[in-house]
Amino acid sequence: MARVLLFGRLSDVAGWREREIDAPFLSALRARLGTDDPSLGEALAGPGVQVALDQVIVRGDAPLNARTEVAFLPPMSGG
């Protein structure tokens, strides 16, 4: 069960900020989120959306374990 966090407009699109989701890989997690909520799937694939695993930005696919914190970060707006 990865712990999924949504920030900024992504949490408005989804209607939630944090959720436990079972997925072995980041790609599987994305697919699962997109199947459950196509508008969220589209927002996650949008330009400038980055992913952090346990607070480190990653690109491409990666395995997830039961305690991985997966954060989807839309373009940052600064302070």
């Binding site: 407009r9 970060l73 940052m76 707006s77 600064g78 302070g79």
Partner: peptide
């Protein structure tokens, strides 16, 4: 203002 991880 431009790059820090905040969402406003």
């Amino acid at each position: 203002k431009s790059r820090a991880p905040f969402w406003k």
